[in-house]
Design a protein around this nucleic acid. Structure first.
Ligand SMILES: [Mn+2]
Ligand SMILES: [Mn+2]
Ligand SMILES: [Mn+2]
Ligand SMILES: [Mn+2]
Lengths: 222, 222
DNA sequence: TAAATTTTTTAGACTCATCTAAATTTAATA
DNA sequence: TATTAAATTTAGATGAGTCTAAAAAATTTA
């Protein structure tokens, strides 16, 4: 039995460990969980006791296979529910995260799998994040960023790195969503911003920060 | 803010008060909540403090308008989710209650209303229980029991009083579900059992206990 | 390497929700 | 009405999860 709180800690630890150049230190976990470092220490002891993490004091924590499976299962549910909310209930992609934060803790393997089937076994959620299957395996995908795209190439937006409502709203204003096709026109070397053109011939200038937060698939490299 | 636990207590108190010949005594609440009377007393103090119930010690509790609205909102969510699970995810009507017990606590009025819309604003859940609308109003319905049906009348099963998996399984074995049409043939006075015939000419004998747990609509009274 | 700073852990306290055992009040019965 | 029984509340304890303040360890800087 894992409590709602334990599940949230495991998810945070898992994503911290799997992010580049980040480690699951007490402070990092506290920041992600919006709690205090002392609370994290308490929880790490408990998770260690339950065999969900390997923890020795003053050393950075490692997640066990058991803990990893819990984390992946929570991520699977989160992303499936987000997909449901956007595709079936007509929510915007910027409105679903908080609701999915609640739904991801509903405990019923049968429910998760039937939901997956009902949705048609989607591989990616509304933000382009991969959805692990019922065995916990993530679909693979080349993950290039818009900032890596070459001039004159044609690309499709397939995901976002930053999931904040702020960023998603900004993209909507720029007429960018998942599936949007863009041609790369110019890269300005003085600020690394990129000029792109969409299928309706609109010119859009995107800052390096924005380009760094967009995952793409390359259609053509001229 | 109402916690998950408070919501469950309010739902229990509400249904106890609205059931015939039952009052929301400490012991009754404890029985329904599968907890101890002393825990109930603690919770009643807290709910009273929050203005969700009117409670004075040693007197039976009353629910306030505020508490009633919370309870109805939980019931609304419970029944909408049950409907979704049966209609969209292909669960059986005997499998959905426990999952709905979890889903009913998801907090998002927008989600509830969008789910309602997605489902086509259903009026009754898979067990025939009325679903309150977004304003908390229950659809009305004549609620006759099968045990009240007259000989030679034709009726439709529209609901169950007993929601236990046991009873629902039994009904499935008897080929009875919501919408099943039956003709009342004989009432045996010595044990009050009823002989009915379904649309496929199957003869089914139902005990008084069963007949007392089935809500019906009358189609014909010959 | 020693001092200063940052990170992490511990100690102790708090809330929510629960329990058992005992005390109190209410209801039933003789 | 007095006694007994049942229902209810109080007292005190526990566990999960959190916090602040202080101590201890690790890291950085001089
Ligand atoms: Mn999300
Ligand atoms: Mn997502
Ligand atoms: Mn139910
Ligand atoms: Mn129901």
């Amino acid at each position: 039995m894992t409590s709602l709180t334990e599940e949230n800690y495991l998810k945070a630890i898992y994503t911290l460990i799997n992010a580049v150049d980040k480690k699951a230190s007490t402070n990092e976990i506290a920041k992600k969980m919006e709690t205090k470092a002392s609370s994290v220490t308490d929880m790490l002891k408990r998770l260690n006791e339950k065999g969900l993490v390997d923890y020795e004091k003053y050393k950075t924590v490692q997640i066990t296979e058991k803990g990893k499976q819990v984390a992946i299962s929570i991520i699977r549910k989160h992303r499936l529910w987000e997909y449901f909310l956007v595709e079936n209930l007509n929510f915007g992609w910027d409105e679903v995260h908080d609701i999915a934060e609640q739904l991801e803790h509903i405990e019923s393997i049968e429910l998760t799998n039937k939901l997956d089937e009902f949705l048609g076994f989607p591989k990616f959620d509304p933000h382009g994040d991969p959805i692990p299957n019922s065995k916990g395996v993530f679909p693979s995908r080349e993950s290039k960023k818009l900032s890596d795209a070459k001039i004159d190439s044609e690309i499709v937006i397939i995901g976002v790195e930053d999931h904040s409502t702020n960023f998603l709203n900004f993209l909507s204003e720029m007429n960018i969503e998942l599936g949007t096709e863009l041609s790369i026109k110019t890269k300005h070397s003085f600020d690394n911003s990129i000029l792109v053109v969409n299928s309706e011939n609109q010119k859009i200038t995107l800052s390096q920060k924005v380009a760094n937060n967009l995952f793409i698939k390359i259609k053509h490299e001229n």
